[in-house]
Amino acid sequence: MSEVIVVTSGKGGVGKTTTSANVGTGLAVMGKKVVLIDTDIGLRNLDVVMGLENRIVYNLVDVIEGKCRVKQALIKDKRHQSLYLMPSAQTKDKTAVTPQQMIKMIHQLKEQFDYIILDCPAGIEQGFQNAIAGADRALVVTTPEVSAIRDADRIIGLLEANEFKQIDLIINRIRYDMVKRGDMMSAADVVDILSIPLIGIVPDDENVVIATNQGEPLVGNDTMAGRAYQNICERVLGKEIPFIDFEKTISFWTRVTGIFHKN
């Protein structure tokens, strides 16, 4: 049975697109048939994060408007056989699509894919309504900042009102050094405030920027964020994976580099 997951946050710039790209890629590596749908009409981004921007012919709005078949708009990933992207339109706006049309299209895609991942736009207007319409599960992305958490709380309320059966939290860009100093909320603090199950903690890692520059998701790589995304994918599949203690990893590396500095 296929699962439709929406990646959402309310606030912009907290890492929805990066999360979508990495979770989608990770699930594909694990042998699942995955389609990533960019629902941010007018501001498409998922294609560049995936490094597929040069292969776009048709897009989501073309499919909705009946200009092409669903299959024609799907772009096959560069590296993974079972991963596809449905790009968004860059020239239209969010009113070009209705929730009913999204549900219809997702219904068609369910026949071919195990996982349908929807990258939701920021905000709670029409674009958000379109993105959540066909989904039955949500990943709420937030950062440990007051503004992002407040918006995440609002989003969770809206998802609950829409009777989502599963809503999980991803805390992005945690800086353990700042948490230790008492200058950033810890993952436990954020979970305490938002009161929904935690599915992943992604540390603030410069490798994410590097990966985005190159257009290659870093899930599964030997980087802190790569491992964190890998764990999220495993948990999405229902496996019990303990949370990595990055604090230890950091202190280990500072110790190692510390030795070199002394020499």
Binding site: V146, R150, R181, G182, M185, D189
Partner: peptide, 14 residues
């Protein structure tokens, strides 16, 4: 700490 301030502010705000 600013962490505590953030937590307290959010609790009331939410």
């Amino acid at each position: 700490s600013s962490r505590e301030i953030a937590k307290d502010r959010l609790k009331i705000l939410l």
